[in-house]
Nucleic acid binder design. Structure first.
Length: 936
RNA sequence: GCUCGGAUGGUGGAACUGGUAGACACGCAGGACUUAAAAUCCUGUGCCCUCAACAGGCGUGCGGGUUCGAUUCCCGCUCCGAGUACCA
C-alpha cells in the first residue's frame, strides 16, 4: 500500500485517545520529566501555521524523553479569560463563555490533528470555576500575608499582628506603603477593628490603595506596566493615560531582589534574563536628606509639610558638585516650597507639563524646561545653599521624585545647568571637557570636594555612606525600578476578586464560599454611574458586607500558577496535592514566546516564590529551563497592476520581473494560490473576479509574484492554515517541515515552498519498508556494516540534536539516512526497527503504523536505541594535507596508524616532498590524529 | 541613547571545542520512463575566466588583527531585527 497518510493519521490519533497512551501517572519508578508549553488564549481566528511551532518542538522532546525512559508530564490547557472574548461580547451580546467554548473546540480539533502527545486528562481552563477557585484562593493567601525583611520571606499576617500587639510598628522591617505612621502597642490595642484594617492594608501583599495607574479609556480599564507599550495598550493599541484611582495592587516589589538573584540559578536564554534584570532595574546608591533653609519671614504660599528633601543618587561621591535640586512637578512638597514671588512661574510650569501627554513627554527628551521654586536647601556635606527647581525630567514615580543636580557628572543636569545658568563644578580630576558636556567618569581623584578630596571612587562612596549615616542625613540605599503590579481590571471576563466591602473597607470572603462565581449580567459595558460591568449584576450581594469588589483579576492571574494545577488538575480540596507537588516539583522544560518576558514569566516567578514562602510548594523557581521559539512572520505575495497616467488601475497585470517597465501598483494576492512565486491564474480569477478578463503580461510563460515579509494577518492574505497543509500532506509532514524551516529560536517568515521535500522524504521512508508493488517487505538477514553505520550515525545525531534543541538539523540527517539505506537496498528488520524508533518523535503517525507492521506494540514506551560507536569506525579515511596552510592534496590512510606512522608516510609521499622542496617541516600540525598541515 | 541578537549561493539553511565552507532541502537546467501528464528516478547547479575540460582566481556584510590555518577568536565600522527609554 502506498503511503496513505490520511488513514494512518486518523487511525493512530484515535488509538492514542482511546488508549490514553500519554496519560502521565503521578509516582513512577521512572524519573520524572515535566515539559510545558505556554498555554494559548483561544482566539476566534484559530491556529495559524506559526502557533504550533513551539508545541511541535516540545512534543518531539516529550516523545524523545519517553523513549529515554522518563515519566513525562506534557499537559495542555487554555488561558481562557481575556479581553477579545469580552470585546466580542460587547459588540454582539454573545456571552464570552459561549464564544470561548466554541474557540476552544476549534483549537482542540486543530491541535488533535497534529498528533500531539498531550495528556488531555489534565486539561485546565482558567475560566472554569473549578480552576479560578484556586486563583482566588491564592489571592486570599496574598491578602493574608506580609513580607518580613528580617526573615526575607512572606509570612502570615498573624505574625505581623503579634508584633503590633507587643512592640508597635517601629521595629517592624517590612515591605509596605511609604505612608505608614508610627504607632505603639498601646495605640494598637486602642485601634478599632476598622483602624486595624487600615493599618494592615499597608502591609498586605495584595492591597487596595490610591495610586497612579495606566488608564485606557477606550478599553475602560486600568492596565499593568507590561500591558502598555509606548503609551498604547498592548491589546488593541488604544492610547493610555495616567490617572489616580483606588486600585488593587500586588506587592511584587517585595520580591525584587529574589527575582533578580534567582535569574542566576535558571537555564534561560540570556536575552530574557537581561530583560527581566532591566525591568527589575536595581540601582545601588544612597538616599540623602537636604534640609530646607529656614525662612525668617514666611513668604511661602502654604505651610511647610516637611523640613528636608530626600533625594536618591547612585553617585553620592559627586555630592560636592551639587549646584541645584530638582523635584518632579508632581512632588508633594512643591506647593509648600514655592515662594510668593515664584508662585506664578511654578503654576505656569505645572500647567504646561500637565498638558503634555505621557507620549509627548517621552518623545521630547531634548528640550530643557523647568522652574525655580524660590526655596533653597543646605547641602549637608559643605553647608552650601542650593536652589530648588522643578522639572519634568524628574519622574515622580522613581526613587524619591527628587534628584540632586550635578552638572559636571550627568548630561541631563549639565543641560539643565547650562540652560538656566547654574554653576558647573568639577569634582574629579579625571573629568574632561566639562564646559562642552558632562563627564560621568569614575576615574581620578576628587577635587573641590572637602573631606573626600584626593580619595578615589570606591573609597569616596564607602566613606560618604558611613558619614551620611553617622550624621543622620542619609544612608546607602538600593532602589528598584519595578513598580508594584496593578491587579484590578474594570472588566467582566476575568476572575472575580474574592473581596467584599463593609464601611468602605475590604474584607476577604470565607474560604468555604469559594469559588466566588462570576455573576451573569445583561450587558458587558460599564454601568451608567461608571462602575465596572460587574456593577450590573443584580442580587449579587455578600452575606456579611454591603457589596462585592466589582473589579476582576488581570489576564496574568490565572497563568501565574497553572503549571501546578496540571500536576493534579481534578483536586477539589487544594490547588494540587502535596504528593503531586512533591513528585513533579517544577517544570523541566518550558517552551514559549519571548513576548512574555516581563509579564507572565515574571509574575509566575513571583507567585511561585510566594507559595514557597508559605510552604505550599517546594521549589524557589518554577521553570528550570526555558526555550523561546521564534515568531513566524507572514510572507505576502503581490501582483502588479498597471496604472494609467492618472494613477487609475487598468485591466493589465504585469509579472514581477517586468514591472519596472510600467507604472504599477502592488496588490496583495492570497499566498495559497501561489507556488514558488508562480501565480495560479485560474485560481486568481476566482479569488479576484474583477480580473476575469484581465491581460496578464507574463515572463517565460509564467506570472511571477513579488514577495514581502509582514505580520501574518487575514487582511494581507498571507495566513497559512495548518488544516490545509495537513489535508494535502499530512500531520507528519507538517511537523517535520515546521522543524526543517530553521532553528527553533529564530524568527522567520513562513514559506510553504519547501514542504514537498519533506513529503517526498516520508514517502521514501515508507518505501524503505516495501517492495516495488507496495507490499510490506522486511527480512531477518544479518545487517551489513554499511547499514549499521548509517543507522548508528542517525541514532547518535538525533540524540545529540534533540538534547541541544537543534531539530532542524536532525530532519536533514533523517533524509541522509533514508537515502543511504535506500541506496543500500536495506530491508533488514533490525536496522529498520531502530530507525522507526528514532524517527517516531518527529513523525509519530507513520512510525506507529510501521511499528505495527513490524509486529510490535507500545512504540511510545520502547527504549531509544543504544548508540554503538564501533559501527562508525572506518578502516580508511581521506583527509587533506596542506603545506603552510595552502591546500595541497588528499591522502588515504588507515585509521589504525599512530601519529608517528602517519608522519612517516606523509613525509615519504613524493608530491609532499615536492612541495617541501627538500626542507624539513618546522612544525607538523595534527588534528584528531591526522596531519592537516606542515609548516616549513 | 542604552542593552541584546543577527548578516553564509537564486531561496530556507548546514558547518557542534578554529581544521576540505555551502550538508540537507527548495528552485532552476538537462535527461530517463510515458502517446501525454502526474508520479518517480538520474545528472548538473557559489561567483569569475573558459566552447569545454584541465587548471586557476575570488568567495561567509565591510576594514583591520591573532594564527600554519578564521563563517568560528579579538578590535573598529555598516546595515537589519528585538527590548527599553529622561531611572538620577
Amino acid at each position: 500500500m502506498d503511503y496513505q497518510f490520511r488513514a494512518i493519521e486518523e487511525k493512530w490519533q484515535k488509538y492514542w485517545a482511546q488508549n490514553q497512551t500519554f496519560k502521565a501517572e503521578t509516582n513512577s519508578t521512572k524519573p520524572k520529566y515535566y515539559v510545558l508549553d505556554m498555554f494559548p488564549y483561544p482566539s476566534g481566528a484559530g491556529l495559524h501555521v506559526g502557533h504550533p511551532l513551539g508545541y511541535i518542538a516540545s512534543d518531539i522532546f516529550s516523545r524523545y524523553k519517553r523513549l529515554k525512559g522518563f515519566n513525562v508530564l506534557h499537559p495542555m490547557g487554555y488561558d481562557s479569560f481575556g479581553l477579545p472574548a469580552e470585546q466580542y461580547a460587547i459588540q454582539t451580546g454573545q456571552h464570552p463563555a459561549i464564544t470561548t467554548e466554541a474557540n476552544i473546540a476549534t483549537y482542540r480539533r486543530q491541535l488533535d490533528q497534529i498528533g500531539f502527545s498531550f495528556d488531555w486528562s489534565r486539561e485546565v481552563r482558567t475560566s472554569d470555576a473549578g480552576y479560578y477557585k484556586w486563583t482566588q484562593w491564592i489571592f486570599m493567601q496574598l491578602f493574608n500575608s506580609w513580607y518580613n525583611l528580617e526573615t526575607d520571606r512572606a509570612e502570615d499576617i498573624s505574625t505581623l499582628i503579634e508584633k503590633f500587639q507587643t512592640a508597635g510598628n517601629a521595629d517592624v522591617k517590612a515591605v509596605c506603603d511609604e505612608d505608614v505612621a508610627p504607632f505603639m502597642p498601646s495605640d494598637w490595642s486602642t485601634f478599632s477593628s476598622e483602624e486595624k484594617q487600615v493599618q494592615l492594608l499597608k502591609y498586605r501583599l495584595t492591597y487596595l490603595k490610591e495610586s497612579t495607574v495606566n488608564w485606557c479609556p477606550a478599553l475602560g480599564t486600568v492596565l499593568a506596566n507590561d500591558e502598555v507599550k509606548d503609551g498604547f495598550s498592548e491589546r488593541g493599541g488604544h492610547p493610555v493615560e495616567q490617572k489616580k484611582m483606588m486600585q488593587w495592587s500586588m506587592r511584587i516589589s517585595a520580591y525584587a531582589e529574589r527575582l533578580l538573584q534567582g535569574l542566576d540559578t535558571i537555564d534561560w536564554p540570556e536575552p530574557i534574563k537581561e530583560m527581566q534584570r532591566n525591568w527589575i532595574g536595581k540601582s545601588v546608591g544612597a538616599s540623602v536628606r537636604f534640609s530646607l533653609e529656614d525662612l525668617e519671614h514666611s513668604t511661602l504660599h502654604a505651610p511647610r509639610s516637611a523640613n528636608y528633601i530626600e533625594v536618591f543618587t547612585t553617585r553620592v561621591d559627586t555630592i560636592f558638585g551639587v549646584s541645584f535640586i530638582v523635584l518632579a512637578p508632581e512632588h508633594e512638597l512643591v506647593k509648600s516650597l514655592t515662594t510668593d514671588a515664584q508662585q506664578q512661574d511654578i503654576d505656569n510650569y505645572i500647567a504646561q507639563t500637565k498638558k503634555k501627554s505621557e507620549l509627548d513627554r517621552m518623545a521630547d527628551t531634548k528640550t530643557v524646561s523647568g522652574a525655580f521654586t524660590g526655596s533653597y536647601v543646605i547641602n549637608p556635606v559643605n553647608n552650601e545653599k542650593v536652589p530648588i527647581w522643578i522639572a519634568d525630567y524628574v519622574l515622580a514615580g522613581y526613587g524619591t521624585g527628587a534628584v540632586m543636580g550635578v552638572p559636571s557628572g550627568d548630561q541631563r543636569d549639565w543641560l539643565f545647568a547650562t540652560h538656566f545658568n547654574l554653576p558647573i563644578i568639577q569634582i574629579l580630576d579625571g573629568q574632561k571637557n566639562i564646559d562642552i558636556e558632562a563627564d560621568a567618569t569614575k576615574e581620578g581623584r576628587y577635587i573641590n570636594s572637602g573631606f573626600i578630596d584626593n580619595l578615589g571612587y570606591k573609597e569616596a562612596i564607602s566613606y560618604l555612606n558611613h558619614w551620611l549615616e553617622r550624621e543622620g542625613v542619609g544612608k546607602a540605599k538600593v532602589n528598584y525600578r519595578m513598580r508594584d503590579a496593578i491587579f484590578g481590571r474594570q472588566r467582566y471576563w476575568g476572575e472575580p476578586i474574592p473581596v467584599y466591602f463593609k464601611n468602605g473597607l475590604p474584607y476577604l470572603i470565607q474560604e468555604e464560599e469559594l469559588p466566588l462565581v462570576l455573576p451573569e449580567i445583561d450587558k458587558y459595558l460599564p454601568t451608567e454611574s461608571g462602575e465596572p460591568p460587574l456593577g450590573r449584576a443584580e442580587d449579587w450581594v455578600p452575606c456579611h458586607g454591603e457589596s462585592y469588589e466589582l473589579s476582576t483579576m488581570p489576564g496574568w492571574a490565572g497563568s501565574s500558577w497553572y503549571w501546578y494545577r496540571y500536576m493534579d488538575s481534578k483536586n477539589d480540596t487544594s490547588f494540587a496535592s502535596k504528593d503531586a507537588i512533591a513528585y513533579w516539583k517544577d517544570v523541566d522544560l518550558y517552551i514559549g514566546g519571548s513576548e512574555h518576558a516581563t509579564g507572565h514569566l515574571l509574575y509566575s516567578r513571583f507567585w511561585n516564590k510566594f507559595l514557597k514562602d508559605l510552604g505550599y510548594v517546594n521549589e524557589e523557581e518554577p521553570f528550570k529551563k526555558l526555550i523561546n521559539q521564534g515568531m513566524i512572520q507572514g510572507r505576502s505575495n503581490f501582483v502588479y497592476r498597471v496604472v494609467d497616467e492618472e494613477g487609475r488601475g487598468t485591466n493589465k497585470l504585469v509579472s514581477f520581473g517586468l514591472r519596472k517597465e510600467y507604472k504599477t501598483m502592488a496588490l496583495h494576492v492570497d499566498v495559497n494560490i501561489v507556488e514558488n512565486e508562480i501565480l495560479d491564474l485560474e485560481k486568481f480569477k476566482v479569488f479576484r473576479p474583477e480580473f476575469e478578463d484581465a491581460e496578464f503580461i507574463l515572463e517565460n510563460g509564467k506570472y511571477i509574484c513579488g514577495v514581502e515579509v509582514e505580520k501574518m494577518s487575514k487582511s494581507k492574505f498571507n495566513v497559512v492554515n495548518p488544516d490545509v497543509l495537513i489535508e494535502g500532506y499530512g500531520a507528519d509532514t507538517l511537523r517535520m517541515y515546521e522543524m526543517f524551516l530553521g532553528p527553533l529560536e529564530q524568527s522567520k517568515p513562513w514559506n510553504t515552498n519547501g514542504i514537498e521535500g519533506v513529503f517526498k522524504f516520508l514517502r521514501k521512508f515508507w518505501r524503505l519498508f516495501h517492495n516495488e508493488e507496495w507490499v510490506f517487505n522486511v527480512n531477518d538477514s544479518i545487517p551489513t556494516k554499511a547499514e549499521l553505520k548509517a543507522l548508528h550515525k542517525i541514532i547518535k545525531k538525533v540524540q545529540d540534536d534533540v538534547e541541544r534543541f537543534s531539530f532542524n538539523t536532525s530532519v536533514s540527517s533523517f533524509m541522509i539516512a533514508v537515502n543511504e539505506l535506500t541506496d543500500l537496498k536495506c530491508k533488514n528488520r533490525q536496522v529498520l526497527e531502530d530507525l522507526v524508533v528514532v524517527l517516531s518523535p518527529y513523525a509519530p503517525h507513520i512510525c506507529e503504523e510501521l511499528w505495527e507492521l513490524l509486529d510490535h506494540t507500545d512504540l511510545s514506551n520502547t527504549p531509544y536505541p543504544t548508540f554503538n560507536p564501533a559501527y562508525l569506525e572506518e578502516n580508511e579515511f581521506a583527509y587533506p594535507v596542506s603545506v603552510n596552510g595552502k591546500m595541497k592534496m588528499n591522502l588515504n590512510l588507515s585509521l589504525s596508524l599512530d601519529e608517528a606512522a602517519v608522519k612517516e608516510i606523509v613525509l615519504a609521499n613524493e608530491q609532499i616532498q615536492g612541495y617541501l622542496e627538500g626542507k624539513e617541516p618546522k612544525k607538523i600540525i595534527f588534528v584528531k590524529g591526522k596531519i592537516v598541515n606542515l609548516v616549513v
